[in-house]
Amino acid sequence: MSEKILKLKNNIAGILADSGNESSKEKPLVIFWNAGLLHKVGPFRMFVDLSAKLNQSGFDVFRFDLSGMGDSRSSTTLDLDRDRIISEIQLVMDELSERFGFDRFILMGLCSGADNAFDVALTDDRVHGLVLMDGYTYKTSMYYAYKYMKLFLNVMNPKKMLNYIKKRIINILSSDNEDMTDIAGYVREFPELERFQSSVHDLISRGVNLYFIYSGGYASYAYSNQFYDFSGVEKESKQVDVAYFDQADHMYIIIESRVVLFSSIIDWINKKCS
């Protein structure tokens, strides 16, 4: 295993973590990038540690910062918006294909990074798999049932109720919708539910493997089957897997929850994307 710095077109800088496995070029290349202002290292160095684990499983990994973010210089050619992000990720895949011969990719993202990964997959046939951590989600009637049950339990406990009211007031005053801003404060825009459903359907038809991972710290996701309830995907789908780590927070700050996350991603990728 070794890491080397790559400087790509469009001022993009990243690190290729090479597994040293000769057959790794036949496997898809795993790619991560910054989530908003949080650079390519990831929260609590999550993406560096996950790269090492993926290398041990024989996958090469490229982690990078979009231009102007983290350790990549500003681009002068593209504007900072969703289309720019999609174009840049595709440029990265183009260059890695040319230079190293990778022709299939697994995109992984957390929070707004997951949103970007999903959007890229819709427009690029080279995407073979997606691992989306706390990506797009939609509230269902069962979600509201869980939420109000929690509120009821809070009413029964004055201390919890006081905390709840305090948080609500702070949220209202700061106009801060907890899941619609990413970990670095960027506002996330979710597609309409119908569009999301048809997009998932398109990806399945194209043979893309999808792993939706939700954490207990993601306030818009309340129960393990919520994905199936809003997406219309059948639980028996062979291409879609869903995990709900209700012990974890949104950033996987507790090491034990990161261990569970990593092991689940490695198992999935070995099973679905080798």
Binding site: K160, N163, G216, G217, D249, I254, E256, S257
Partner: peptide, 9 residues
């Protein structure tokens, strides 16, 4: 922090 964790570690 109950706003961070569903189940406290």
């Amino acid at each position: 922090d109950r706003s961070r964790f569903k189940h406290l570690p």
